Amino acid sequence: MNTTAAQFPYPWQRCKIIHLVRHGQAMHNVEGDKNREALLSPHLFDAQLSPLGLQQVAKLRNDVHASGLLRRIELVVTSPLYRTMQTAIGVFGSESHEDGGNENFSVISALNCPQIMAVELCRDRLMDGEHDNMWNPDVREPEEEVAARMVQFMKWLWTRPEQEIVIVSHGIILQHILNVLGNDCHPTVRSNLCKRFGNCELRSVVIVDKSLIGADSQLCSPRDVAKENVLRKEVSS
Score class of each variant (00 low, 15 high):
215 A>Q: 12
2 N>A: 10
22 R>S: 03
32 G>Y: 06
107 V>E: 13
190 R>C: 07
229 N>M: 13
115 Q>R: 15
70 L>D: 09
18 I>M: 01
66 A>Q: 12
119 V>C: 11
218 Q>L: 04
58 A>V: 06
182 G>N: 12
234 E>P: 00
11 P>Q: 03
59 K>T: 12
219 L>D: 13
51 P>M: 06
207 I>P: 01
70 L>W: 02
231 L>R: 03
237 S>G: 08
237 S>P: 04
109 S>T: 14
137 P>E: 03
84 T>C: 09
148 A>D: 07
129 G>T: 09
57 V>G: 02
119 V>Q: 15
183 N>H: 14
173 I>G: 05
195 K>C: 07
44 L>V: 04
48 Q>Y: 08
67 S>M: 14
41 S>I: 06
237 S>L: 14
121 L>P: 00
162 E>N: 09
43 H>D: 15
24 G>E: 06
104 N>V: 06
63 D>R: 07
160 R>T: 05
143 E>F: 11
136 N>E: 04
11 P>I: 00
177 I>V: 08
212 L>V: 11
144 E>Y: 13
48 Q>G: 12
95 E>A: 14
10 Y>E: 02
94 S>G: 08
210 K>Y: 13
235 V>R: 06
120 E>Q: 09
47 A>Q: 08
141 E>I: 03
158 W>P: 01
65 H>V: 09
9 P>V: 04
68 G>W: 13
158 W>D: 11
227 K>V: 08
80 P>R: 09
115 Q>K: 11
94 S>C: 15
81 L>M: 15
3 T>M: 07
32 G>Q: 04
173 I>H: 04
222 P>S: 03
128 D>Y: 05
1 M>W: 12
31 E>G: 00
55 Q>C: 05
214 G>I: 08
24 G>V: 04
142 P>S: 07
73 I>P: 01
221 S>N: 11
43 H>Q: 13
40 L>A: 15
70 L>K: 12
193 L>R: 05
77 V>K: 01
7 Q>G: 02
80 P>I: 07
179 N>Q: 15
85 M>H: 05
127 M>T: 13
44 L>C: 04
68 G>D: 12
114 P>A: 11
14 R>Y: 05
52 L>V: 14
76 V>F: 03
186 H>N: 15
64 V>H: 04
55 Q>V: 04
26 A>D: 15
210 K>T: 10
178 L>Q: 08
233 K>H: 12
28 H>A: 10
101 G>Y: 04
169 S>E: 02
182 G>F: 01
178 L>S: 00
112 N>E: 10
156 W>Q: 12
200 C>G: 07
123 R>C: 03
6 A>L: 07
1 M>C: 08
160 R>N: 02
43 H>G: 10
235 V>D: 11
135 W>P: 00
232 R>M: 07
68 G>N: 12
47 A>C: 09
122 C>E: 02
201 E>W: 09
119 V>K: 14
112 N>T: 01
56 Q>A: 02
4 T>W: 13
27 M>R: 13
73 I>C: 09
99 D>C: 07
212 L>D: 14
230 V>S: 13
183 N>S: 14
23 H>Y: 14
156 W>I: 00
75 L>N: 11
116 I>C: 02
19 H>I: 07
66 A>M: 02
116 I>V: 11
128 D>I: 02
23 H>K: 08
144 E>Q: 12
181 L>W: 13
